[in-house]
Design a protein around this nucleic acid. Sequence first.
DNA 1: ACGACACATGCAACAAGGTTGCAACAAAGA
DNA 2: TCTTTGTTGCAACCTTGTTGCATGTGTCGT
Lengths: 149, 149
Amino acid sequence: MPASPAEASTQIDRIHAVGARATPARIAVLRLLESAESALSHREIEEALATGFDRVTLYRVLDWLVESGLGHRITDGERVFRFSLAAPANASHAEHAHFRCECCGKMFCLADIPVPAPALPAGFSGKAVEYCVTGQCARCETDVSSDES
Amino acid sequence: MPASPAEASTQIDRIHAVGARATPARIAVLRLLESAESALSHREIEEALATGFDRVTLYRVLDWLVESGLGHRITDGERVFRFSLAAPANASHAEHAHFRCECCGKMFCLADIPVPAPALPAGFSGKAVEYCVTGQCARCETDVSSDES
DNA sequence: ACGACACATGCAACAAGGTTGCAACAAAGA
DNA sequence: TCTTTGTTGCAACCTTGTTGCATGTGTCGT
Ligand SMILES: [Mn+2]
Ligand SMILES: [Mn+2]
Ligand SMILES: [Zn+2]
Ligand SMILES: [Zn+2]
């Protein structure tokens, strides 16, 4: 089933809104991230998009995503970058906490949980804060508890 | 100037205390991290230790450092691990905040700043928290301000 | 002091994630 | 439709970190 034209044009508008060209790779990545429940790595995106976009093209789309402000990049603590969409159009992408599941490896944006403000030593000036919790996500938790021996 | 024997024996004792063999590479890394003001990457350690320890040996020493509990590892958000010593012998290495300077790239352990406890959504269970602030460190701040045009 | 043994080291090869240079290509606007 | 300028694909490369295996060495018992 091909993507509905209406859905695609939503993404095209978003791309044009930041003054960029709407290319198939960008549209596909936007659509994928839109439907993702967790932040995705380059690898995951490459696999989800069965279409044969070149590795480098995807890297460049992801760079563009972040630079244009349409998405943001986080590091998952295991040396890989993960990407998700910024808050849809309206609010500026407020700083928020992240959660990484050690079981399934997924990375969640906890948009509801505010990041506590830092208290820095004298002379230090902070700009951004990264707050990431690791543990088990809701799904993995239930999977484990229903797997009693 | 060669390392004082007294200094070296301090490191040797620490290594023996965790039931490990005191090798030149381990002693050198411990001594270096002891005197470091910020968490060091493998690369930085390799360069600081002019001695020709093999790349892999240093990686293994760093792995051992963390596994033995003598040190801890953090990710600096740019896909590299950094290492620093755990609190010297006495207290267990409590969770603490980190600061990464965007200017000089150094990573500081803010041992005094406690990490705020997370409030997670239902079903999620957290184990560890990573709290890292990025900005400008005290030194870079003064360097910039004394560089007025 | 000596020897045995377990553990640590060096080397080479490998792996994953990401970047760069450049020629060919295609959105967007005229 | 044409032109322009930004984007793509490909090949090569880089950085960080890991693995296998033969050789070397710290430690402990004697
Ligand atoms: Mn996020
Ligand atoms: Mn630390
Ligand atoms: Zn999970
Ligand atoms: Zn600095």
